[in-house]
C-alpha cells in the first residue's frame, strides 16, 4: 500500500505544524456486513510514528475507534523550513507504510 499518507508540514516561528491524512479502512472488527450478516474482520492502524532529524516526535497507539481515513495533526518545536519528517504506520494485519515530507 504505497502512498497512503498525505502530509502537510508548515513551520512558523520555530514551531512546526504537521497535518496528515492516512488512507485506511479502520475496521473495528465488530461491524457486520449488511448483505451477508457476517462480521467484517478487524483492520485498523495500531501504531503511527513520526520522526524528525532521527528523533521520535510522536508515537501514537490507536484502537479501532479512530475514524476511517484518519486525520492527525500535531505540533513540535525546533524545526526549520526544509527539514524532513518521516511518518509511518503499522496496522493489526502487519501492513505498513511510510512517507517522508519536507517542512515548508
Amino acid at each position: 500500500m504505497a502512498k497512503s499518507i498525505k502530509v502537510r508540514a508548515k513551520v512558523k516561528s520555530g514551531v512546526a505544524t504537521i497535518k496528515c491524512l492516512i488512507n485506511h479502512p479502520m475496521e473495528t472488527g465488530i461491524r457486520k456486513d449488511k448483505k451477508t450478516g457476517k462480521l467484517i474482520p478487524a483492520k485498523f492502524i495500531q501504531e503511527v510514528a513520526c520522526e524528525h532529524g532521527g528523533k521520535s516526535v510522536l508515537n501514537a497507539q490507536w484502537g479501532g475507534a479512530v475514524s476511517k481515513n484518519p486525520f492527525l495533526s500535531f505540533k513540535f518545536s525546533g524545526a526549520k523550513s526544509g527539514d524532513t519528517i518521516k511518518i509511518s504506520w503499522v496496522d493489526n494485519k502487519g501492513e505498513s507504510d511510510a512517507t517522508e515530507a519536507k517542512i515548508k
Binding site: 524528525h52 500535531f74 518545536s77
Partner: peptide, 13 residues
C-alpha cells in the same frame, strides 16, 4: 481510542 506519546520537543497539541 488513542494514545499519543509525545517527544521532548513536541507540544501538547
Amino acid at each position: 481510542t488513542a494514545n499519543f506519546n509525545l517527544g521532548a520537543n513536541t507540544e501538547g497539541y
